[in-house]
């Protein structure tokens, strides 16, 4: 057992993967000498050299495009996109190339690359550095999507993503980098694509992922003080999506809320709630409720920023209203 931060766990995953497989290379803006804008790749260039930890020009599209070509020719590239907000710069290479190459070419080749990036609010970083754009990725067939919430998952999901034969977009949360946890990295990780039930409770199911997991858990703690017990699911990966775990819990409990930091309209929460409503209809006692980001850009003002996305109060308050008389 060892105490690590989320950031350290990511770095450890990269270092271990690079040690095990000489074909794993890291490329991106500031990943080498600078050590990564959020410090994730610190010291990797010292340990693995500039041929495997490649500092690139500020050319997001070509970073992803180069990773695609490298992945098709025997490397296992881990490209870093400094902020998920820059994903628009890469969308052709990601959505038209990486995502479609296996299919368009009749299964001749995969594109085993990882695009590591980070998103979300919490650092007063403004409208172009604070978004939660996972829906862009989840809406594109051919891309895997991992969003670790815990330190252990930061390590294990990144290792699994690097081993994945298909392109994985790996979205970290900028507010989690300094979070600490005591973890056993040698322990057998849960299988790729399996959700984790982080809390058990019989009154409602809260489905979440990434940092909102902690808001959901804090809300559940407050609800418990009022006699409401919530089950909290951490999806871990959005593609593959473990809907079986959601279905099983929602059918047993009968109430579901989906919590996401992304803008509510046409977002991940929209997809999940539609699916719950369709597939668990007969078991639901209430409409599925989405608690998601406002349909507005994120502000630099910390007050406006915090108000733009769900927090424990909104989640707990919404759950209490769903439970009506019991609150």
């Amino acid at each position: 057992m060892i105490e690590l931060t989320y950031r350290d766990a990511l770095r450890q995953a990269l270092a271990d993967a690079m040690t095990e497989d000489p074909d794993v290379v890291v490329l991106g803006e500031e990943v080498g000498r600078y050590g990564g804008a959020y410090g994730v790749t610190r010291d990797l260039i010292r340990d693995f050299g500039p041929d495997r930890v490649i500092d690139t020009p500020i050319s997001e599209a070509a970073i992803v495009g180069a990773a695609v070509g490298a992945a098709m020719t025997g490397l296992r590239p881990v490209a870093e996109l400094m902020y998920v907000d820059f994903i628009g710069m890469t969308m052709d290479q990601l959505g038209n190339q990486a995502a479609k190459i296996r299919y368009m070419f009749g299964g001749q080749t995969g594109v085993p690359m990882v695009l590591r990036t980070q998103g979300g609010t919490g650092r007063s970083a403004g409208a172009q550095h604070s978004q939660s754009l996972e829906a862009y990725v989840m809406h594109t067939p051919g891309l895997r999507l991992a969003m670790p919430a815990t330190v252990a998952d930061a390590y294990h999901l990144l290792r699994q993503a690097i081993a994945c034969p298909d392109p994985v977009v790996f979205i970290e949360h900028k507010a989690l980098y300094t979070m600490k946890e005591t973890v056993d990295l040698a322990a057998e990780p849960p299988p790729w694509g399996r959700a984790a039930v982080r809390r058990e409770g019989g009154d409602l199911v809260i489905v979440s992922y990434s940092r909102q997991l902690y808001h959901a858990l804090e809300a559940a703690r407050r609800l418990a003080e009022r006699g409401i017990e919530a089950t909290v699911i951490d999806l871990r990966t959005l593609n593959p999506l473990d809907f079986d775990t959601i279905r099983e819990r929602v059918e047993a409990i009968g109430r579901a809320m989906v919590v996401s930091e992304g803008a509510m309209t046409a977002g991940v929460a929209a997809e999940l709630s539609a699916r719950i409503a369709e597939e668990c209809f007969d078991f639901l006692e209430d409409p599925v409720v989405r608690v998601a980001g406002e349909d507005i850009p994120i502000s630099v003002s910390t007050a406006l920023e915090a108000g733009s996305v769900p927090g424990p109060e909104l989640i707990a308050g919404t759950a209490a209203r769903m439970l009506g008389g019991r609150a």
């Binding site: 599209a61 070509a62 495009g65 180069a66 992945a71 098709m72 490397l75």
Partner: peptide, 17 residues
């Protein structure tokens, strides 16, 4: 232009290997 950057990656790969 969509296929152009892949050769940068293939070039990295050829050099690496």
């Amino acid at each position: 232009g969509g296929g152009i950057p892949a050769v940068v990656g293939a070039g990295l790969s050829a050099r690496h290997h």
